[in-house]
Amino acid sequence: MRVIVYLPFVVSALLAIAGPRLARRMPPRTGTRLLLTAALGCAVTVLLTLGLLAWTLIARLPLVAAVGAWSGDHLHHHDPVPAPAAKAACVTLAALACALAFATARRLRALHHVRREARRLGDGHLVVMDEPGIEAFAVPTRDEQGGRIVVSTGMLRTLTDDERRVLLAHETAHLSHRHHRHRTLATLIAAANPILVTLPAAVHHLTERWADEDAAATTDDRRLAARALARAALAAHEDKRRTSPGDAVLCFGEAGVGDRVRALLADTPRRRPAIAALLLALLTAALLSTAEAGHDSAQQLDQARDQYHARPIGVSAATLHEARHLAAVVEHHLHH
């Protein structure tokens, strides 16, 4: 394999640094989707690259070489991937598998918890809690309504009638666009590719901006939407009784309120084809490098098969022979 095999790691780093900034300059709906698409492609290519690097070590094992009918010695002498890099890839793949499983379980548990709490609140789409605290959030569910909008009486007293319309439009946008799925995907991508550590926060901010823009369009008043957001955020900040309902719900008046208010006071975001093309170019580079690495790996295996000296014994016997050889090599290393 050539040095190009490591390109997905470079692309992931570039996307983690520049991706969120580029996405914020686009309409939030487009920015969210493009950023997630590019990040998902980077995560897949990084995992495939690690698999290819690990395979260069696994393919050299006598047992694997015997079953695959290729020369392990040829791969050992002609593969440019250093053994430490291949071993590190094996360990990294195992660690990422555990991290992804843990992140999936944690997210599913959080969603299950909030949905169970939503069922206790009642069957209505809008639930008003008789609480003085400043609370407003959306809880995604699997029913026809798509979720519950939960608002406290303290929040309703804080806002005017028009500002309440903004709040309800904002939370409705979260539910109708299933923003919890975008955030879940971002969390899982970051678990599978830790280089993209900035992705979950970026997607969280973009989905909030997406809901802000929907609320501004619904009320046809961007300044009203900005005022409602600022008033709710200020009241929530001053409310000492307020506690976070968890990362599986979609809250109003949180996550980068200052930037969101400034965006609402500005003009509607314009489409930026150049940024979209740049994000897609990064994704294409990662995909092409992985495809080229896979092609190189296939060529090496073909050459190793050509060097393989067929034995007049079956695969099972050859495997037994290689197993005995491997045991002898291990015993030799243990004694020395």
Rank of each mutant, 00 (worst) to 15 (best):
G133Y: 00
G133M: 12
I134C: 13
I134H: 05
I134Y: 01
I134T: 13
E135Q: 13
A136I: 09
F137E: 02
F137C: 02
F137V: 04
A138T: 08
A138P: 03
A138L: 09
V139D: 01
V139G: 01
P140T: 09
T141H: 03
T141C: 14
T141V: 11
T141Q: 09
T141W: 04
T141N: 03
R142I: 02
R142P: 00
D143N: 14
D143G: 13
D143F: 10
D143V: 09
E144L: 14
E144N: 02
E144Y: 03
E144M: 09
Q145I: 10
G146V: 11
G146C: 11
G147R: 08
G147I: 11
G147A: 12
G147N: 10
R148T: 09
I149D: 03
I149A: 07
V150W: 07
V150L: 11
V150Y: 07
V150T: 09
V151P: 04
V151R: 06
S152C: 12
S152Q: 10
T153P: 00
G154C: 12
G154R: 08
M155T: 15
M155A: 14
L156V: 12
L156F: 09
L156N: 05
R157M: 12
R157W: 11
T158L: 14
T158M: 14
L159E: 08
L159Q: 08
D161G: 00
D161T: 14
D161C: 00
D161P: 03
D161Y: 06
D162G: 05
E163T: 06
R164M: 10
R164V: 12
R165I: 01
R165G: 15
V166M: 05
V166C: 12
V166Q: 04
V166I: 14
L167I: 08
L167W: 04
L168C: 00
L168V: 15
L168P: 00
L168N: 00
L168G: 00
A169Y: 02
A169G: 14
A169I: 05
A169W: 02
A169S: 15
A169V: 04
H170S: 03
E171P: 00
T172E: 11
T172V: 01
T172F: 03
T172H: 11
T172R: 15
A173M: 04
A173W: 01
A173D: 10
H174M: 06
H174R: 03
H174A: 05
L175F: 05
L175T: 03
L175H: 02
L175G: 03
S176V: 13
S176F: 01
S176G: 01
S176I: 03
S176L: 13
H177A: 14
H177T: 12
R178E: 12
